[in-house]
Amino acid sequence: MQLTQLQRSAAQAIVSIFETGRPTGGYGRVTVLQGDTGRLTYGRFQTTLGSGALYFLIKDYVERPGAIYVSALAKYLGRLLKRDGALDHDGALHRTLKAAGEDPVMRQAQDDFFDRNFWTPAVAAARALGVTTPLGVAVIYDSKVHGSFERVRDRTLRQVGPPSAVGEETWISAYVANRRAYLAQHAQPILRKTVYRMAAFERLIRDDNWDLDLPFKVGGFRIDEKTLRAGPAKGRAARILAPADTPMKGDDVREVQARLRELGYGADPTGAYDDDTVELVRKFQEAHGLKVDGAVGPATRASLETARPATPNAAHAEAAPEPAVLAAAPHPA
């Protein structure tokens, strides 16, 4: 069994649509699914906190040379290992994960992680069963990502026997029907809703598209060669804000100023990276052990995103307004 690169990409695109709502996913995507055992999920393939997989992904990332957000994410490893549910609502972590999705090192870490933990095991499981078609591999890959593969595999083997006895197409069709029933009757309501995954596979089976010939549609998305070769959409990387004779201007400057203000540095969100803002950035960098250059690059940006508000320095504290003096209200006679 040897899938072409396009067939492999097509199989992964199907599962990406199920997981992220896009054929090629999003490396910086952060979601929290209430009622799901995964809870906080992250990345192109929605790696979950509840399964423990998010810990291993972040651990892999921070150990890679050149990773930008090492200090900002390494401090969460202990809590990720414990699957701390409070991380579902940790805004600083969520912001850092989103930003890290633009780091090429994180993108490669996610691709390698899913190849190692899901795609390669799915291909091995398909080979062990004698499943060779791209659609059959896609069905097994989806189960490896979503869960329940072994349970449904064993149920299908008991019902119809191995693929070698009934034919691969018959076996995969029975497997999909069994998995639909398994999901539809699941104790967790949120998983009952995921029967749409099986509906998509049933449609491909009805279309006799066992080779995943392009183009085809899943979940309203057209999967074609152009989509697959384009790869995951890349967000616009944050520019480095640096001191200049003519101050840089923009919403990104205003966001940094607003964040400095939240942290007690008293910046006015003017949108201009002027001398006053540069000086406040320098003070922030000095207080957080960063290179003091007045520029907001990846390291300073990550620290801004994860820093906690502190009592502002007296020099930056704003004077509280004097309370208004109210005239005594007349009493009724």
Rank of each mutant, 00 (worst) to 15 (best):
E279V: 02
T306H: 11
T300R: 11
G271K: 07
V292D: 07
A307D: 04
D293L: 00
A267K: 08
Q257P: 07
E286L: 13
E262R: 11
D293W: 06
G271M: 08
E286D: 08
G289E: 03
Y265A: 07
A258D: 13
A302W: 06
A272Y: 08
R282Q: 05
K283W: 07
P298Q: 03
H288T: 00
T277H: 04
E262C: 06
R301G: 12
D268I: 14
A272F: 12
P298K: 13
R259W: 09
R301S: 13
Q285M: 04
D274S: 12
H288S: 11
A295Y: 05
V296Y: 09
A287G: 02
A302Q: 03
D275W: 09
G271R: 01
A299L: 14
T270Y: 00
L304R: 09
Q257C: 13
D268F: 13
R301I: 02
D276K: 15
K291M: 14
Y265G: 11
Y273F: 15
T306Q: 10
Q285C: 08
R301A: 13
H288V: 04
G266L: 00
G264N: 00
L260A: 01
Q257N: 12
Q257R: 13
S303K: 15
G266P: 01
L290H: 02
T306P: 09
P298A: 15
A267N: 00
L304C: 12
A295S: 14
R259E: 05
G297M: 00
V296H: 11
A267L: 01
V281Q: 09
F284N: 09
D293P: 01
P298G: 13
R282P: 02
A307M: 08
R261C: 06
P269I: 08
E305K: 15
A258F: 10
T300C: 09
D275M: 12
A267Q: 00
E286G: 12
E279S: 08
R259F: 06
K283P: 03
A272W: 07
Q285N: 05
V296C: 12
L290S: 02
T300H: 02
D276M: 13
H288K: 11
T277I: 04
T306C: 08
D268E: 15
A287R: 12
A302M: 05
A258P: 09
D293V: 02
T300A: 11
V278E: 00
A307H: 09
D275C: 00
E305R: 15
Q257L: 13
G289H: 10
A258T: 15
L290Y: 06
D275S: 14
D268H: 15
R282S: 02
S303F: 14
T300W: 06
V296K: 12
G271I: 03
A258K: 15
Y265H: 10
